[in-house]
Amino acid sequence: MSSHAATIDHHHDSTTSTGIPNKKLLWWAFLASDCMFFGTLISTHLVYRLNPPPGNAIPTQVFNIELTSFSTFILLMSSLLMALAVNAIQRGNVRSTRTMLLGTMFFGCIFLGGQVYEFGHFVHMKHMTLSNSLFGSTFYTLTGTHGTHVAIGVLLLGMMYVRTFKPAAGGGLSMNFLHMLAVAVAAGVAFIVFVPGMIEIIYGAGIGEFLSSHAVPLSVGAAACIAMAWFARQSSTVEFGEKNAIDVEAVGLYWHFVDIVWIIIFTAVYLLEYL
């Protein structure tokens, strides 16, 4: 009983001059600077949309608003899972934290897969490339930069997930490295091959054709998933606990940030085109 008597204050840190944990302060400062980065990218896109040059692509003929709305919903739900992961670790529930982190990564991969499908569809079916129209240039630069942020977020979540398995007794560095490799490969295959393939199947492509043409990457992804399950079955005591809540929260701040940026992009880049 006495070992649990001291409650950790997750919002304040009396050891710093600001009363804010240094990691949290660092992330907020970074996110504030990232706001300006995306602000310039969004305004560049809007400036050229308000003054379109001749021969520009027509967005409503290119976009697939149903898919983008679904991606937006998925990203919002991933934010929910991330918030629940932080909530779980603040209550010392490592197992639930892992589940929520994996769920957030999975939803992030669905969002990225949707973007991979969308980009491929725009290039091959709608013939809108990075260089053949100004709309394409600003659109791919903006949404591609956001997608890169999401991909980095998935990687950070993967690193945090693997870290929850670090043994309390120390060591296990090579195992953690292999575990991280398995997570990265599984996530990569999920958003580059699996999710875009599933979307194509939903839109009428054949399952057999998809499986046969992507047999190698799908097998590698399946092997990575099996490896993840194997690494996750360890039962020794882990170092990770409530004291690491600030680390999960820091990754969570980044993840929520990519969500709020998408909230703006969805309205400014997609929805306003349909008016």
């Binding site: 649990h4 008597a5 409650t7 950790i8 997750h10 929910l80 918030a83 629940l84 909530n87 603040q90 209550r91 010392g92 529930n93 490592v94 197992r95 639930s96 892992r98 589940t99 398995f165 309390a168 996750a232 079955r233 360890q234 039962s235 020794s236 005591t237 882990v238 170092e239 990770f240 606990g241 409530e242 004291k243």
Partner: peptide, 26 residues
């Protein structure tokens, strides 16, 4: 998947700050 944390366990819920689960879902 069920490895216990070294310092805190899920059973010590009473000593943590109130859960925001329902707020987040809403």
């Amino acid at each position: 998947m069920s490895a216990p944390a070294a310092t805190h366990t899920p059973t010590a819920v009473g000593h943590h700050e109130p859960s925001k689960f329902h707020i987040y879902i809403q």
